[in-house]
Computed example of a mutant assay.
Amino acid sequence: MEKYDVFICHNSQDKPEVGKIKSSLQSQGIKTFYDEDNLIAFKKWKKQLQDHISEVKAFLVFISNNGTGPIQHEEIDFFLKEVLPKNSEIQTGLVILRNTVEGIINTVKNSYPEFKDFHYCDFRKEELNSMNKLILAITGREPESQSIITQPKSLTKTPQQPPHADSISLEGIDYRELTELLSESKWEDAWENANYLTYKLMLNAVGKTQEDQLTKEDVKDFPCTDLYKIDKLWVEHSNGKFGFSIQKEIYLSVGGKPDGIFNQSIWRKFSDLVGWVGKDANGCNFFYDSEEEFTFDISAHKGHLPVLIEDYQEIIIDIFARIEACPQFNKDPLKLLNSHLGFQPDTSAIKAVEIINSLPNI
């Protein structure tokens, strides 16, 4: 297997800019692994990526306003879990592409705290100097020529747009990648990647990283706007087949109550309807407890996804209770108004007017 100096981990949407940087690195004699250039046809692409990640001298993660892509997530996870612990000498860090907003960088760092320990290369500053610094960091020497490093005019004329306000929640969570995955759910692994990303985004929404677990306490105070956003994306892109609110409807249909109290009998009925139950070799039923047992496909039972693999039996019951408490899921306009005004959900219209009138003029 041919060995490379650098593995370029990037979002496919960033190929125009990343490709130019790759060419500049190659012009300095740096052997770069770049998927569309170096993947061999008719061989398993995931194994090829992992094999090369394990052998390179430097693993560079390129970040832009497009966020990190689903394949990029897999590459980063493999590197941090399987490669970096065994080879502390490997060079790694973030390469920040032009016009990237701080919120995106912070999201990536929160998702992968390991990168907080490494200084990053910032192309938002003067590009020629940034390219020189990148080459120096990889090779330990100044670039031989600077004429090939400048960015093409076509790139500088069309800067990346910052994320739309609707894609960033009040907690600073960026939902563009989840939207992209669910909208491209016809592709292989899209549903599974979306399910994985959903859990990670939920951890981020409560200030945790992917190394943590979502607890009952986290769910009880989970941000309603984020829960509603996640659920809405799943419901819309599955045509009403998947989503927490869909699961809640099924749970209520078998006699469940959205009170956060686990009932074994109700759980059996619910799990059977959403397809979370299998049969062992003796024909006995058992509840799924590993990722391989679930079906990440639109052909799955209604309500089958999303599934939070870690302690999902208890967590999902608490999510149903949280949905019940969140006004965004309630179509009662008075409760929605009370929520926006900061009043209790059951505050009457007359009482709300009295409270507003009692406020001092500003």
Score class of each variant (00 low, 15 high):
241 K>S: 02
244 F>D: 01
236 E>P: 01
226 D>P: 04
246 I>E: 06
242 F>T: 00
249 E>Y: 10
259 D>K: 13
272 D>Q: 15
234 W>H: 00
263 N>F: 04
229 K>W: 04
227 L>E: 00
264 Q>S: 05
250 I>S: 14
236 E>C: 02
262 F>Y: 14
256 G>Y: 05
239 N>G: 07
238 S>G: 00
243 G>L: 09
266 I>P: 14
263 N>Y: 07
261 I>V: 10
255 G>F: 07
240 G>L: 03
259 D>S: 12
272 D>A: 15
261 I>E: 12
240 G>N: 03
232 K>C: 03
251 Y>I: 12
243 G>M: 05
258 P>T: 08
229 K>F: 01
229 K>I: 01
253 S>L: 15
249 E>F: 13
228 Y>T: 00
233 L>P: 02
259 D>H: 10
273 L>M: 15
229 K>E: 02
227 L>D: 02
260 G>V: 13
250 I>T: 09
254 V>R: 14
250 I>A: 12
247 Q>S: 10
228 Y>A: 00
242 F>N: 01
225 T>D: 05
253 S>M: 13
232 K>W: 00
234 W>G: 02
228 Y>F: 01
238 S>R: 00
275 G>D: 11
245 S>A: 09
242 F>H: 00
227 L>F: 04
254 V>A: 09
246 I>L: 05
256 G>Q: 10
257 K>T: 08
255 G>Y: 08
273 L>K: 15
242 F>D: 00
